[in-house]
Computed example of a mutant assay.
Amino acid sequence: MAIIQAQTREGLGKGASRFLRRQARVPAVLYGGTRQNRNLSLDRKELLKLLETEGSGLRTHRQDMVIDGDVRVAVLLRDYQIHPISGMPEHVDFMRFDPNQIIQVEVPIRLKDEEICVGLKGGGMLDLIQKEVEVQCRADDLPNFLEVSVAKLEIGDAIHVRDLQLPEGVHINAEDNFTVVTVVGVHGEAAENAVAG
């Protein structure tokens, strides 16, 4: 768990945000729960380090935010914007962490058993089509990732979203049964087989 240092910001609007960015700070907002939204700012260097070390875990792991050096709040990162040219963070949204609140969050897919995958041993290649899936659950039940075993997949096989084993209390609201991962044959082999057949 990281500790995020934040400061209250007074000014709102584009001008105030530009001024903050010139001071190497990033505008942020904290919302959720029964309390009012709080307009904050973060040190850009600290935020970049946090994004680099925690990565997608910021969306799925509770973090502690210290506001103005004394108010401590449990938060989840909800969204952030990156400048398309500079690559610098432009704005960050945090949500107060309420363990009983039902939230929807994108959770990473983590593959396992690749070393014993039937299709890979047969010359196929894994194609992870969906790197994240959106889950719905209580904040306290939020998994860090969803683990998917590919051990039994043969060339041409796929695992779909409805095949995923979900932890208790975690749901996926997917209208389409989209493909998460598949094993594809190498093109050269497929062409050879077609000629031979």
Rank of each mutant, 00 (worst) to 15 (best):
V75N: 06
L76P: 00
Y80R: 00
Q81R: 07
I82E: 09
H83C: 09
H83R: 03
P84Y: 10
F94S: 07
R96I: 10
D98F: 14
N100W: 12
Q101M: 10
I102N: 09
I103E: 05
Q104D: 15
V105D: 01
E106I: 03
P108T: 03
R110L: 12
K112H: 15
K112Y: 09
D113V: 07
C117E: 04
G122M: 00
D127W: 11
L128S: 06
Q130H: 15
V133F: 07
Q136W: 11
R138V: 04
R138L: 15
A139E: 02
D141T: 05
L142S: 02
F145S: 12
L146S: 12
V150P: 05
I155M: 07
I155C: 10
I155K: 03
I155R: 04
A158G: 08
D163I: 07
G169A: 01
A174K: 06
E175K: 12
D176K: 00
D176H: 12
N177V: 01
V180I: 14
V180S: 00
V181L: 05
G185E: 13
V186A: 11
V186N: 10
H187F: 15
G188M: 11
G188N: 14
A191W: 11
E192Y: 11
N193C: 13
N193H: 15
A194C: 08
